[in-house]
Design a binder for these strands. Structure first.
Length: 315
DNA sequence: AAGGTTATCAACCGCCGGAAG
DNA sequence: TCTTCCGGCGGTTGATAACCT
């Protein structure tokens, strides 16, 4: 048998929280800490479901929460992140210090989604002067399934999903002796193979298939390459498409230094060009984003990355 | 001023992966 | 090994505020 149920919903309060309930919850968490949501209502004397308590705490009572007044910078980040990640509100929120997924989701639904749809060629920043209407195709990504045979821009053959995938497992790979070996040789036996872009991969709908592709080199250190994209959760935009695209033609940025170590080589060197972007993606996605420790420079570099990522998308 | 419409957002719902038992 | 539950997520709803006619 499993555990006992979290709570019976009978006799529980529903709807808006009162100030008194907020105080009780806040005080309880202050003394006992977060977690154990199932037992929390009973122990704290709240007539609420544990799930409701968790939601209330995470979205409104946490001390580091910022509310309202989303800045233009934050707005731009949200737009760019949404373009890359789709409706992965928790991931997006994780990159906006003090913001919650619920707030960002609401903000998107009430403001940005409309803006983006009604202004398909809207310039997102001072960097976006040369963006073209491809942006519009991506901006409505979350509810459309699109696949175009056109290939000059990667955005044109991106798979856009209606339903988000979750992908939380970390796959570590043993570095392959031959870096340039064709991907087929790394696929598991019995896996369906399909041509996808210029690589053969397992069903591209399985992000895991992509995660396990060990073909990316990383200067002297293949371990970094094999770790890429942990927890990426790329959903609405199929990352495998993103990375299978003509990235090397579009992207021309370097992200070589972190903690004094070279993590990647520039696209012009003899290794695969997409690595630098992947390492960076890994960096900011697998990082658990300690909200309190996100500095302005972090946001800046992240914003800068998003700009580059936007360029991949053919903006 | 009154009634209708639209916008906002807090809270709920249902699903999923992983852990507990 | 199987069943059940927890924690977390994204989607949706509903109350109410703001705006319009």
């Amino acid at each position: 048998m499993g555990r006992s149920p979290c709570c019976s919903k009978e006799g529980l309060n529903r709807g808006a929280w009162t100030a008194q309930e907020d105080n009780i919850l806040r005080e309880y968490i202050r003394t006992h800490g977060e977690g154990k949501w199932r037992d929390l209502p009973r122990k704290a004397g709240l007539k609420r479901c544990g799930k409701s308590c968790r939601l209330r705490w995470l979205n409104y009572l946490r001390p580091d929460i910022k509310r309202g007044n989303i800045s233009a910078e934050e707005e731009e980040l949200i737009i760019r992140l949404h373009k890359l990640l789709g409706n992965r509100w928790s991931l997006i929120a994780g990159r906006l210090p003090g913001r919650t997924d619920n707030e960002i989701k609401n903000y998107w639904n009430t403001n940005l989604g409309k803006k983006v749809q009604t202004a398909p060629t809207r310039k997102l920043s001072r960097h976006s002067d040369e963006r073209n209407s491809t942006t519009a195709q991506l901006n409505v990504a979350s509810n459309v399934t699109a696949s175009s045979p056109s290939s000059s821009k990667m955005a044109s053959h991106m798979i856009i999903r209606t339903k988000a995938f979750r992908f939380s497992k970390v796959h570590r790979l043993t570095p392959q002796p031959n870096k340039s070996e064709h991907l087929d040789t790394n696929l598991g036996e019995g896996q369906p193979i399909m041509e996808y872009g210029h690589h053969s991969v397992r069903d591209p709908m399985e992000y895991g298939a992509y995660e396990e592709r060990p073909s990316f080199t990383c200067g002297e250190d293949n371990d970094h390459a094999s770790d890429f994209l942990m927890n990426m959760n790329m959903g609405d935009i199929c990352l495998s498409d993103l990375l299978d695209s003509e990235f090397s033609d579009i992207c021309n940025f370097n992200y070589c230094e972190e903690n004094g170590n070279e993590l990647s080589r520039s696209p012009s060197s003899d290794g695969p060009a997409m690595l630098s972007g992947q390492v960076l993606l890994q960096d900011w996605t697998s990082n658990s984003c300690d909200q309190a420790n996100v500095s302005a420079p972090t946001l800046q570099s992240f914003s800068s990355f998003l700009h580059s990522a936007g360029e991949w998308l053919g903006e």
